[in-house]
Design a protein around this nucleic acid. Structure first.
Length: 388
DNA sequence: GATCCACGGGAATACACGGATG
DNA sequence: CATCCGTGTATTCCCGTGGATC
């Protein structure tokens, strides 16, 4: 047997085995540089931002629409491109102003899921504006705020895209939008959320709203086809399967991608080279019906993600009460049982898990509640597998 | 020495149920 | 019968402490 043949044989084997070409392309929390479709929506957002093209700060805009409609994808791509074309290179803080260059613009994208405190918010903002790295310890929130103001002092205008405003509890959002100080005056907000502005924060009431419609089945099929041709081996999925997935997801791209990744996970566990119907079914089953977005779960601190991962390893039985689950998890964790219990209640509060009143076992006292995950389980395990 | 925030623990409150009380 | 009480859990709320980092 000659070398050529040996190599060809290896290649064939490798090809058969390689179901996934680029897992990133399949991830529900990854956004392509150029979103598929959504052209008219982009236009309407740009209409709202139009003054920036004349060097003025625009009025606030709120983009809203149901889950999985590509809001984040659209806005991240937009901010990215705008920054590339319209903003000046990042400055160091003390840099003196160039005279006579008109209003200077800067853009920032902040995810409320990650920036949960005022501190995190300003930190992220500075990170977007300024070249030098900002310390995370030993510096006060006030100090950060002052630095932001300082940055704005030289007449800059900034456009801040603030994503997921109604999804986490951002009580400081109100203060920010209403604030009368330099930050309030020189900042144009591009907020993104599920709800119509009237139902989100009172500060958003008069803001121009752009609504993003749900994907039609054909559009979602296109989105999926794009992702799949980039992420999976050729012919790993049939066109019918893709259509079926799009129909099942009912316009929710997030759910579709989460199920897809779940299906891929199942196929890999099977060492299969194509997605079988059973894999697709397993993928769908790994996305519960009321289901929080993967982005929210992955934005949780590492310790909590670990707890969630352990939770998924428990049997039905072990999840039959909060205390029970907490005890089981604590056994294999460095965290105390009481902390884990608190986490579980927090998860329930934010919808990441659901507490279901157990069919009462006739015991004395308040009946326990079973713990059910409400996030895409297989996709989560795949994406969160940052081993320690 | 300063800062933020994750941990951990415990107090307060809610709920379920059976039984006693009016 | 309606209400209250006691007991045992479940759940929520709150806050001091200390780690890690600047």
């Amino acid at each position: 047997v000659n070398l050529e043949e040996r190599i060809l044989r290896r290649m064939r084997r490798g090809e058969g085995r390689r179901l996934v070409v680029d897992e990133n392309a399949l991830s529900p929390v990854w956004h392509p540089e150029g979103p598929v479709g959504r052209g008219p929506t982009v236009e309407r957002v740009l209409d709202g931002l139009d003054p920036i093209f004349e060097g003025r700060g625009p009025d606030d805009v709120h983009v809203h629409g149901p889950a999985g409609t590509g809001k984040s994808a659209l806005v991240t791509a937009l901010v990215d491109h705008l920054a590339r074309h319209l903003s000046e290179p990042k400055d160091t803080i003390g840099t003196t102003t160039r005279a006579g260059s008109g209003t200077r613009l800067a853009f920032a994208y902040v995810d409320a899921r990650a920036a949960t405190s005022e501190f995190e918010f300003y930190h992220r903002l500075l990170d977007e504006f300024v070249k030098e790295s900002i310390p995370r310890r030993g510096i006060s929130t006030e100090e950060l705020r002052d630095r932001v103001e300082n940055y704005l002092r030289s007449g800059r205008s900034v456009v801040v895209a603030f994503d997921h405003v109604d999804d986490a509890e951002v009580d400081h959002l109100g203060d920010l939008l209403r604030s009368d100080d330099l930050i309030g005056r020189r900042t144009s907000w591009l907020t993104i959320g599920r709800n119509h502005p009237d139902d989100t924060h009172e500060e958003l009431e008069d803001v121009a709203a752009v609504s993003v419609p749900k994907y039609h089945r054909a559009e979602l099929t296109d989105v999926l086809t794009n992702r799949i041709s980039a992420g999976l081996a050729r012919d790993a999925m049939t066109h019918d399967q893709i259509r079926d997935l799009a129909e099942w997801a009912d316009g929710d791209a997030h759910a579709a991608l989460a199920a897809l990744l779940g299906a891929v996970d199942a196929a890999l566990a099977d060492e299969a080279s194509v997605i079988e119907p059973s894999h697709l079914a397993a993928g769908k089953a790994s996305v519960p019906d009321p289901c929080v977005s993967l982005g929210r779960v992955l934005a949780l601190p590492e310790n909590r993600q670990t707890v969630l991962r352990r939770l998924l390893e428990l049997t039905e039985d072990q999840r039959s009460s909060v205390s029970n689950a907490a005890a089981e998890i604590a056994a294999a964790s460095s965290l105390s049982e009481s902390t884990i219990r608190r986490y579980l209640y927090e998860f329930a509060e934010s919808g990441v898990v659901e507490r279901e009143r157990a069919a009462d076992a006739g015991g004395v006292g308040r009946p326990p509640s079973r713990v059910e995950p409400r996030f895409p389980t297989r996709a989560f395990v795949r994406l969160a597998s940052v081993e320690s």
